[in-house]
C-alpha cells in the first residue's frame, strides 16, 4: 500500500517534470529490440504515449516506411536512401535549380517536386499553396532532425502521408471541430458563428500544415507522433484545445479577421499544456488505443 502510493506519487512527479516515461521508455526499448519491428505495436505505442526523444526519429522513420521492419536491412536501405538523396540533389544542381546558397528547406522542396514530377519549368515560378505547406512542414522538421538525409526523407514521407492516406479525411476536420466544439463549449461556438469567424479559422495552418509554424517544435513533435502513427484526428483536438484555452481572449474579439490573426499567432508559453490537454480530449472522445505489448 505504502509502496503503491509512493509509486503513484513518483509517477505524478515524473509527469510534472516530464520524466513520466521511465516505464514507457522501457517498454518501447523492448519493442525496438525485436529483429523484425512490429509496426502495429509501434503505432499503438505512439498513439498512447509521447515518444522518448532519443527514439523519435527512428520510430518515425519506421512508421513512415523510410526504413523497413527488419533491423538487419536498416544499414543497406539507408544506403539506398542516401544515394537517392545525392542523385536528386546533384540533378538539381546540374539544371541550376539550386545553388550552394539555396536555403535547405527550398532544396527539400525542389527535391520533392522533382521526385513527384511537379518541378516547375522555371525556378522563378510562383509557389503553389501545397509548396507553401511543404516549406512550413520542412522548416519545423529541420528544427527537429539534424541529419539532412533523414530530414528530407521525413518531410517528404510525412507530406506524402498527408496527401495520400489522409487525403479524404483532412477536408472533413473543420466539420469535426464544429461537432466537438459544440459538445465542449457551445457558447464559444455560438460566438464564433455570430461573428462569422468559424469558417475563417486558420484551417490551412492547423490542418494542412499540421500546426507547423503555430506551435513550437517541442510541442509540435508530440502532435506529429500521433499523426505519423495513424491519427490525423488529433489535429482537431489540438485546434479545439487552442480555442478553449484562449476562450476569454476570443470572446472579447468580435471581428473575424482579428480572431483569425490572433489564432495564427498564439502565445508560445503554454503550448505544452495545450498539447497535453488536447491528447486527453482526443482519448476521451476517440478512446485510448489498447492491445499494447
Amino acid at each position: 500500500m505504502a509502496e503503491d502510493s509512493q509509486r503513484n506519487f513518483r509517477s505524478v512527479y515524473y509527469e510534472k517534470v516530464g520524466f513520466r516515461g521511465v516505464e514507457e521508455k522501457k517498454s518501447l526499448e523492448f519493442l525496438l529490440k525485436d529483429d523484425r519491428l512490429d509496426i502495429e505495436k509501434l503505432c499503438t505505442f505512439s498513439q498512447r504515449f509521447p515518444l522518448p526523444s532519443m527514439y523519435r526519429i527512428l520510430v518515425w522513420k519506421v512508421l513512415l516506411g523510410i526504413i523497413p521492419p527488419h533491423h538487419e536491412s536498416h544499414a543497406l536501405v539507408m544506403k539506398y536512401r542516401k544515394e537517392q538523396y545525392r542523385d536528386v540533389y546533384h540533378a538539381l544542381q546540374v539544371i541550376r535549380f539550386i545553388k550552394d546558397t539555396t536555403p535547405q528547406i527550398e532544396v527539400f522542396l525542389r527535391m520533392h517536386q522533382l521526385e513527384s514530377g511537379t518541378l516547375p519549368r522555371n525556378v522563378s515560378f510562383p509557389l503553389e499553396l501545397e509548396d507553401v505547406v511543404f516549406l512550413a512542414i520542412a522548416k519545423a522538421m529541420e528544427e527537429m532532425v539534424e541529419d539532412n538525409t533523414d530530414c528530407y526523407w521525413l518531410v517528404s514521407s510525412f507530406v506524402n502521408q498527408l496527401n495520400n492516406k489522409y487525403k479524404d479525411l483532412l477536408p472533413q476536420l473543420p466539420k469535426f471541430l464544429e461537432q466537438y466544439l459544440n459538445f465542449e463549449d457551445n457558447r464559444l461556438l455560438a460566438h464564433l458563428r455570430a461573428c462569422s469567424a468559424f469558417s475563417k479559422l486558420p484551417y490551412t495552418l492547423w490542418f494542412k500544415k499540421c500546426f507547423a509554424g503555430c506551435l513550437p517544435e517541442s510541442s509540435l513533435q508530440r502532435v506529429w507522433d500521433k499523426v505519423i502513427s495513424g491519427s490525423c484526428k488529433i489535429l482537431v483536438f489540438v485546434a479545439l484545445e487552442i480555442l478553449l484555452t484562449f476562450k476569454m481572449k476570443i470572446m472579447a474579439l468580435t471581428n473575424a479577421e482579428k480572431i483569425t490573426r490572433f489564432l495564427e499567432n498564439i502565445p508560445q508559453d503554454n503550448t505544452d499544456a495545450i498539447v497535453s490537454k488536447a491528447i486527453d480530449l482526443w482519448h476521451k472522445h476517440c478512446g485510448t488505443p489498447v492491445h499494447l505489448v
Partner: peptide
C-alpha cells in the same frame, strides 16, 4: 518481408533516377 523491404528501397531509387532523366530531357 525482409526482401520486400529492400526491394522497395532500390525501386524508389531507380524511379528517382528515371525522374531525373526525364527532367534532364526537358532541360
Amino acid at each position: 518481408i525482409q526482401a520486400r523491404g529492400q526491394l522497395q528501397a532500390v525501386e524508389s531509387r531507380y524511379k528517382a533516377q528515371k525522374r531525373i532523366t526525364q527532367t534532364f530531357e526537358l532541360e
